[in-house]
Design a protein around this nucleic acid. Structure first.
Lengths: 215, 215, 215, 215
DNA sequence: ACTTAAACGAGACGGTACGTCGAGTCTTACC
DNA sequence: GGTAAGACTCGACGTACCGTCTCGTTTAAGT
């Protein structure tokens, strides 16, 4: 995304880019999405609030969604760095704890996720990006690759460890397995199909680990 | 949804409504969403294609999303009626077959769902509605209540039957259980997190029934 | 004007016409022109205010200007009848007094005209009709024939009497002569070129009678 | 007129204004008024014909009448410059000739005016503006101040010269005197009360100079 | 008095234009 | 050459009325 190196104009010189403007644009975009919602957030509005010319936005990003995506990635990275042991490779990732009790570890992480999903500063932009991604495949794939997949990979890692510890069957595909508890939460949140809670995610983990058929 | 009896104008007289225009608007809206995509579908475009004045749309619906929602509901109902034993109450519902083999029944239905999700005539509008619903809570809830939940209820029914047959544990909540295989498919489709296939949904059913922990 | 007997529909049956509606339409049209001005007076507005269907207006008149013209003619006739000795032929005409003093008679009538031009109930509709007539030749000619010319004819009559009395030269064309004092007043009023007053019209009469060259 | 510095938007920067667009708008407005008439001339039509966005019109003018007024002023100035000895101050004014024969001078100028009033390129827009001015006092006053009064002033000047030469009585008010021949012509033209011709204006001058009473 | 057809009130309809907003492009002046 | 500012063309918005077209419902003439 971003970086429209398609045959536009001469192609901007990134070394002369104004860091100040970039930050102001990120801040304005995120603030507006929280305050007035994504559909009413406009490029003109972002430019005005950031004290920036419209052209400066069009020079570096290709669309409103693109601006917001980068702003949100930036926000996530900042949050990651702030909140502690950021990973070396710049990923926004914490590892999932491994106390030896898989169920407890998953429940803990999912409870934290539930809490995060309720924080307006995260909810508004991520909802907006998710919505845009549903209808705009390119953005959707970027969103997944840059934000979602790295997080899911943490579950894959934890599940692999569990397989080695014998807590998960060896023939199970971890990438699919994680969806048993992650996707239901995602759908309830995204589509308002039902409320989310700590109890709910606990239940999901239990069902996912042991199935719903009689043992 | 629709029918904004809030203090708009005097409130139109539904008995005088033109059935012809309504149908033409549904057809135009669905066709445009398929052809040019939801964001480029405009009220003016729908009106022009339907051979209808813009005011006729604004008189009966409050937004583009609202038009499309009703158009899609109508389409679903028609499809249900066409395809066979429609329910008495106008519900768009088929029951899930009960051959006695729960796994096989679920796999069959999910395979059919995968196929449907790939039909452009259904995919374009439902994707558009889902996206809009993510960012517009009111529409989202209506979408769920009118379209999604009735379909999910069929799974609830089948799972309850399975509980009585002893194929699902009695302490399992069917409304949550169904999410183990429905939500992962939904998320992959909606967010392009990974490809969908018959094999994939088969696997989901197996994991959901028996869990991922060693038996 | 009015009575569009052109090949429209079957042609309405005037004998069954609702007198009540006609009056209500006249009243509404005149009131709206006074209250909101001619451009903001709409057919829908007149119909609503008169408690009448739009079709009832379109059935009997061909345009907004046409409605107002008849309404104003009706108003003029009423005013004429009310104010005294209406002429036999239904004309809205009083004769100009003939006291033997031409200058005094003309000044008196023009002073009365100045007063009438300041009465909002007359000013608003007649201004509207005059304006429409400037740009719509057909209406303009009707306006002149039905309203203006009958009034000017009174001056012609008075001037002819004056010619017989030797107060006006025999070789003067009365139809042109009257314009020397009527048109300046009309232009000042219509076009706001300068204020109008009794003194002003008195002066006009003096100049017109004796010229501006040295005697 | 124009320049609505009232609390609209931030107020556009006139130095950045596109001269090309302005000219194109003037040309389109005048052409449309001539071709389809004032009522059927629309802002959208002007914009389309001028190859200009609607917003560019709304940015610089407040109404259709305002556009046309400026277009016509511009046309008049151009005509003045083209046709000869334009005044220094940008006034659209020629002096009225002074051959020593007042009657002949006035008749010559009025004959020229009659001819001009028949030129469609002038007639259509000036009729439209006059009509609008009748019903819209603000525009009417601007029309008079910017277009009409400067022309009438020429008559005032000529009449004053005539007073000094002893051809007009000293106690006559030239501003009123000029109306004796100008206003009748104006009214016949504006309101279609009677045809205009060179003979007619000659007669007006004779009547105005010497009056209609016996000498 | 009863019938019946036209006028009537109401208002939905296909349209056109309104005046506004924002998109994305282009130009100007500044640093 | 990047930038703030903002004018530009363009397209869609949602609204107001236009003039036409049904709908029942009066209502007045002719049986």
């Amino acid at each position: 995304m971003a970086r429209n190196q398609s045959a536009r104009h001469p192609a901007p010189d990134a070394t002369r880019r104004s860091e100040r403007s970039r930050r102001a644009i990120y801040d304005a975009a995120l603030a507006l999405v929280v305050e007035v919602g994504y559909p009413k957030t406009t490029i003109e509005g972002i430019a005005a609030r950031a004290g920036v010319g419209k052209q400066t936005i069009y020079r570096w990003w290709s669309s409103k969604a693109d601006v917001l995506l980068e702003a949100f990635l930036d926000l996530s990275e900042q949050a990651a760095e702030t909140a502690g042991e950021a990973q070396a490779d710049g990923g926004a990732a914490y590892a999932i704890p491994d106390t030896g009790d898989l169920a407890a570890d998953l429940k803990a992480v999912l409870r934290a996720t539930v809490d995060e999903l309720r924080d307006p500063a995260f909810e508004a932009p991520s909802r907006a990006l998710a919505a845009e991604g549903v209808v705009n495949e390119e953005l959707g794939r970027t969103f997944v690759a840059r934000l979602l997949e790295p997080q899911l990979q943490l579950y894959v890692d934890r599940l692999r460890a569990a397989q080695e510890a014998g807590d998960v069957r060896a023939d199970v595909d971890p990438r699919i397995a994680l969806e048993l508890f992650v996707s239901p939460l995602a759908q309830r949140w995204l589509q308002y199909t039902a409320p989310i809670s700590h109890d709910y995610t606990d239940t999901l983990v239990d069902y996912a680990l042991h199935g719903i058929a009689p043992r």
